[in-house]
């Protein structure tokens, strides 16, 4: 197993940041290589971490699907495309204190694609923000677990989202606040790719670049599918990375289901001083269950009893 060290050339030794990476990590990241030195080291500790994250993500998917089945409503396809990103963030990247959710110096995370609340809640429970049994109340009358997250009700939730295109402006403001307060915390925001059709994202994209918010990280869950159909058939968003690059962001592309890559890049983010970071995470909608994968139907399809059983069995038996 290897550890890769991402280091900016101008950084000194004390600025080295260490991040675990899968041993089959071989693809050069889409960061400009001239700015980076990448070295790798043997370790055994990372294997445990990757295994832990893999198991956690499996539980998150199983619970999210059970929650949607219980509520008879939800968005399992997007829950599954985002699950690995959420788990990597909450269990491997974000500086948080689950026992003290409002710790002032915590990193901020905004789930802009708020309809994927089941995956978020399951991840928050996994990270220890609340007890797992609360997940069983998903969308029940008077539950704290609304269909879309409410920061006033759910420990660990930073923003009330649901209508698309709110998260990036919010995160931009959070990053501005950190700068004004001279605080070290970072702000991460996860959007869908179809969601980026909302113009408010691009208003914020311009603003974050103008203000050089190098404490802001946008992650695009690029699963290629929106409610009605494949994104490219509705309103094409490609070339996604080029769009952000042209807006003045530092862009990296990763496999959004590879914990090695996610930890390397998210852990090294923000990637460059003076620029906001956009990580295009290439994902598969419904990832983890064969009959859910890459099928627009599963955007908000509620599994039947049989589908649930099949999906859970498949997740349970998954080797990866």
């Amino acid at each position: 197993m290897l550890i890769c060290i991402f280091m900016q050339k101008q950084f000194v030794e004390s600025d080295l940041r260490w991040f675990p990476c899968k041993n089959n990590f071989h693809r050069p990241l889409a960061v400009q290589s001239r700015n980076w030195v990448v070295t790798m080291r043997e370790t055994t500790a990372t294997e445990d971490l990757l295994r832990r994250l893999t198991l956690a993500a499996r539980r998150v998917r199983m619970r999210a699907l059970q929650m949607v089945h219980h509520a008879r409503i939800g968005h399992p396809g997007g829950d599954f495309s985002a699950a690995d990103i959420l788990v990597a963030l909450y269990l491997g990247v974000l500086r948080l204190r689950p026992s003290d959710p409002s710790w002032p110096d915590r990193d901020r995370f905004v789930l802009s694609k708020g309809h994927c609340s089941a995956a978020l809640y399951a991840t928050l429970a996994e990270a220890g923000f609340f007890e797992e049994k609360v997940l069983g109340t998903f969308m029940d009358p008077l539950s704290i677990l609304n269909g879309h997250p409410d920061r006033k009700k759910v420990p660990g939730v930073e923003a009330n989202t649901g209508p698309l295109g709110h998260g990036l402006p919010l995160a931009t403001g959070m990053a501005l606040a950190a700068r004004m307060k001279k605080a070290a915390w970072r702000t991460f925001v996860l959007t869908g790719d179809g969601e980026l059709q909302e113009g408010s994202n691009w208003e914020a994209g311009l603003c974050a670049a103008q203000y050089g918010l190098d404490n802001l990280v946008l992650i695009v869950d690029r699963n290629g599918i929106q409610q009605g159909d494949f994104v490219e058939k509705i309103i094409r968003m490609d070339p996604m990375a080029d769009k952000w690059r042209s807006f003045g962001w530092q862009v990296a592309e990763v496999n959004g289901h590879d914990f090695g890559e996610l930890l390397c890049v998210l852990g090294s983010s923000p990637l460059l001083p003076g620029k906001p970071t956009c990580i295009v995470a290439n994902t598969v909608k419904g990832r983890g269950v064969s009959f859910m994968e890459n099928n627009p139907k599963w955007h908000h399809h509620v599994p039947t009893d049989k589908e649930l059983a099949l999906a859970l069995a498949e997740l349970e038996g998954a080797e990866r």
Partner: peptide, 22 residues
Amino acid sequence: VNVGIAEQNMVGASAGLASGGM
């Protein structure tokens, strides 16, 4: 902060600023 001619971001970013303690 001058967000330019962009009111959705103006209000959204203000909410983020408030959430960050400003």
